[in-house]
Simulated assay, not measured.
Amino acid sequence: MHAVSTRWATMADLPALGSLIALSIETLQAGFLTPEQIAASRAIMGLDTQLVVDGTYLVAEKDGEIVGCGGWSRRATLYGGDHSTSLRDPQLLDPARDAAKIRAMYTHPRCARQGIGRVILSGCEQAARAAGFSAVELMSTLSGQPLYVASGYRPVETVEAIVNEVAVPLVRMRKHVTA
């Protein structure tokens, strides 16, 4: 595998990110969700461009191509993209009492299980820790849960997001990131 590099996303990355995210949702959940659940998950998953504006969204590149992405946030929103406005809460978190949020983690399907998610996740955790947070939390899909468990996250609760009467299972997870 060629080296993977990371950088903070810019607004110019949005078209490439949109394509990667759509492909990732469609492909990587196939072994975990029914086709109806995958279709429903599109309504709650995706990129919240506030992460790009805030400078907290990483892209992973390999040979000049974006092959993964994910971010962290100091805002209260736990998950959801631009289109899922009912899930968004722009309130700033207090690092002394709140956990930073890990958000919108996606890998290109042909690069899955090659360590790209770990690189992005580690970069996000380090940035959250540098911003004063001692814990991070996220809302995991079933397909993402193995990565998060292997990275030290523990389940807090299992929930179902209901979209057009279709239940999409999700797992809220948490990790302490103190040095």
Rank of each mutant, 00 (worst) to 15 (best):
R74T: 03
S5E: 14
R118G: 12
T141R: 04
V163G: 02
Y153A: 01
D89M: 11
V52F: 03
H2F: 11
T178F: 11
T49H: 15
K175L: 10
L47E: 01
A167C: 04
G46M: 11
M139W: 02
Y153R: 13
G71F: 03
T107K: 08
W72A: 00
L142K: 09
R118A: 15
R74I: 00
R74L: 03
E26G: 01
Q145F: 05
S84E: 13
A131E: 14
S143T: 06
D89F: 01
D98W: 12
M45P: 02
G70T: 02
T10I: 04
T77H: 06
D54Q: 14
P169Q: 06
I21L: 10
N164Q: 14
S140C: 07
S5C: 07
S73N: 09
A131Y: 09
D98I: 10
T56D: 07
A30N: 10
A128H: 00
P169G: 13
V159C: 10
M1L: 06
E61G: 07
S143N: 06
H83K: 15
L138S: 09
G152R: 06
R74A: 12
S84M: 14
G152P: 07
A130H: 07
V67C: 12
R113S: 14
T141W: 02
P146L: 01
D89P: 09
A161D: 12
M105N: 05
T6L: 15
P146C: 05
E26D: 13
S84C: 11
G115Q: 02
S24T: 08
L92Y: 01
E61V: 10
Y153E: 03
R97S: 15
S84H: 14
P15V: 05
L17C: 04
T56L: 04
